[in-house]
Computed example of a mutant assay.
Amino acid sequence: MTEDRNEPSVFVARLLPADFTLDRSKALSVQLYQLLRDAIVTMTLQPDDVIFERALADALGISRTPVREALLQLSREELVRIAAQSGTFVAPVKREQFAESALIRKVLETASIRRAAEIITAHELEQLHDIQEAHRRAIERNNTVAAIACDNAFHATVCAAARLPRVQQLVEFARAPIDRVRHVTVRDPVVADLTLKQHQKVLEALEQHDPDAAERALREHLDDAYARQQAAYDANVELFLGR
């Protein structure tokens, strides 16, 4: 991490896509929350990076109030830390936080997939097939950001099929530390292909409306992924803990 990462102009350039515009008809704080959260989860903003409220507000031509509201929500999710008299910084990915997130995800997803296997519709199964195909294309293009988005979409669609929207929301929040690790370390095409095969096994169990097989396939997938993510975390621990 170089020192110029924490220059206001560099921060704004990293954060704002060239075509980014705010929709003034919608809540600005919600849009800023999503913008900042995406940048943190994808590791565009890394642990200990400074978040320049004024520079961001000035670049967008808005007051600092919606920026602060967005940062307060991110602070509640432990994605930023607000230090009195010092500023606002991207939070580290702590080992215990990462492990807890994996546990929460496993408990919630393996419980919900049993319900999904019983009531999933033909349309939802078709959606999962489409996601699998998009995931395969992202891997072929070596687009890791798109591949992770497809991976997450697959799991979200399974959760949605269980008709448990609050569980789906909790999984989304819990997954943030895991995704931060993945966006740094997921580069191995062999691992990407393995994920596709594991997802296919889950999908086949859902097509059979077999709760036991679906839970077993998902549990094996999540356990395998967590073991690899733990190793990746350990190999990059200085980055995740910040300075």
Rank of each mutant, 00 (worst) to 15 (best):
E3K: 09
N6R: 09
P8I: 04
P8D: 00
V10N: 13
F11Y: 13
F11G: 06
R14W: 06
L16T: 07
D19W: 08
F20H: 11
D23F: 10
D23Q: 09
R24A: 13
K26W: 08
A27K: 15
L28V: 07
L32A: 10
Y33G: 05
Y33F: 15
L35M: 02
D38G: 10
T44L: 10
L45G: 03
D48K: 12
V50M: 06
F52R: 04
F52W: 06
E53L: 12
E53P: 09
A59H: 14
L60M: 11
S63F: 08
T65K: 15
R68M: 04
L74C: 02
S75L: 05
E77G: 04
E78H: 11
A83M: 10
A84F: 05
G87C: 05
F89S: 05
A91R: 03
P92H: 11
V93D: 01
V93C: 04
S101Y: 02
I104P: 08
R105F: 09
K106C: 05
L108F: 11
E109L: 12
T110Y: 02
I113C: 05
R114G: 08
R114F: 01
A116E: 07
A122K: 03
A122W: 01
E124V: 02
L128N: 00
D130T: 13
D130N: 15
E133G: 02
I139R: 07
E140H: 13
E140G: 09
R141V: 01
R141D: 07
C150K: 06
A153H: 09
F154M: 03
A156E: 14
A156K: 13
T157V: 07
V158W: 03
A160C: 09
A160K: 15
A161M: 03
L164K: 11
E172M: 06
A174T: 07
A176M: 12
A176V: 05
D179Y: 12
V181W: 01
R182F: 00
V184E: 08
T185H: 01
V186C: 10
D188C: 01
A192R: 09
A192W: 12
D193V: 11
T195G: 14
L196G: 08
K197D: 12
K197G: 08
Q198V: 07
L206S: 08
L206F: 10
E207A: 15
D210E: 02
A213I: 04
A217D: 06
A217W: 06
A217I: 05
H221W: 02
D223Y: 11
D224H: 10
A227F: 01
R228A: 05
R228Y: 04
Q229N: 14
Y233Q: 06
D234L: 00
A235Y: 00
V237P: 03
L239D: 00
G242L: 03
G242M: 01
